[in-house]
Write a protein that binds this DNA or RNA. Structure first.
Length: 262
DNA sequence: AGGACGCCCTGTTCGC
DNA sequence: TGCGAACAGGGCGTCC
């Protein structure tokens, strides 16, 4: 699912393919992903302008235009970007399409259409208005511990709380907890200094490595839980059965042996 | 404040 | 075997 590493990969994809390209039109086959705007409005505002910069905060990707406008994109569960020649076979699940001058299209794909695109003028104001926390790769160790342990909560939903630490979802929270050897239902207030440091280190290692392999599941290390998040799977470290529990309305996968409750 | 739950959405997996 | 139910899950809203 598009969590921080996937969105960072999309940001680099956007930079590599669409930068400095002029928009000639906008189409929205599935306008329900547009938030507070329309295909006509987007077309009016973006036509004739070029994509010049990109930013990412948590799971949000921002594409900056030379006009000062930005597209704020969230991918929901199944979104991605696709850059392709206009005369080639169009991609599936196109929700919004930027027609570019050079004969290519930049498509925002969304199979389940749970993603959203907004037209904004200030990413920082957008981040503040959405009450997003600090980006998971920007946060420092001391601040991480403070945001992690203040208030009562189970550690897994806390890692996924976008209002505190932005960018981590269900899959990577499982991986981070697995590598830090911490049970997902542990209370944050019970975590020792040593454990929160292990969590911080695991968070950075996991996110950076996932970015390095362009969030490609096939290239994730075999020592990770990542590819073993399924029923009947085995722990890649101890070989024991992988367990599940429900936390924050999501299914957590973990190894009961490597991540004991206490 | 935190958590449980429902909703959105559709492709895949599961169970009878 | 086949079909409908359950599941997948990011984010949001509601209720306790």
């Amino acid at each position: 699912m598009p969590e921080l590493p996937e969105v960072e990969t999309e940001r680099r994809y956007l930079d590599a393919h669409a930068r400095h390209q002029r928009v000639t039109g906008v189409r929205a086959p599935h306008p329900d992903v547009l938030s507070g705007t329309s295909a006509q409005s987007l077309s009016r505002r973006l036509k004739g302008h070029t994509v010049e910069s990109s930013r990412r905060h948590g799971k949000y990707l921002f594409a900056g235009f030379d006009s000062g406008d930005w597209l704020a994109m969230h991918f929901g569960m199944t979104g991605s970007l696709k850059y392709y020649r206009q005369d080639s076979k169009p991609a599936e699940y196109i929700a919004v399409l930027l027609l570019l001058e050079g004969g290519h299209d930049l498509a925002y794909l969304s199979r389940r259409r749970l993603g959203r695109i907004a037209l904004i003028t200030d990413p920082d104001a957008f981040i503040a208005a959405r009450k997003l926390g600090v980006d998971a790769l920007e946060i420092k160790a001391a601040q991480f511990r403070e945001l992690l342990i203040s208030g009562r909560a189970a550690v897994k939903p806390r890692l996924m709380d976008q209002g505190r630490i932005a960018g981590i979802g269900n899959e990577y929270s499982d991986e981070i907890l697995f590598q830090a050897r911490i049970h997902p239902a542990r209370s944050t207030t019970s975590l020792s200094q040593r454990e929160s440091e292990a969590l911080y280190r695991a968070m950075r290692t996991v996110l950076k490595k996932a970015i390095a392999v362009r969030a490609d599941p096939g290239r994730m290390p075999s020592s990770w839980l990542y590819t073993n998040r399924s029923k009947g799977a085995r722990c890649p470290v101890c070989g024991g059965p992988v367990g599940t529990l429900s936390a924050g309305g999501r299914t957590a996968y973990y190894c009961p042996k490597c991540q004991p409750r206490r």
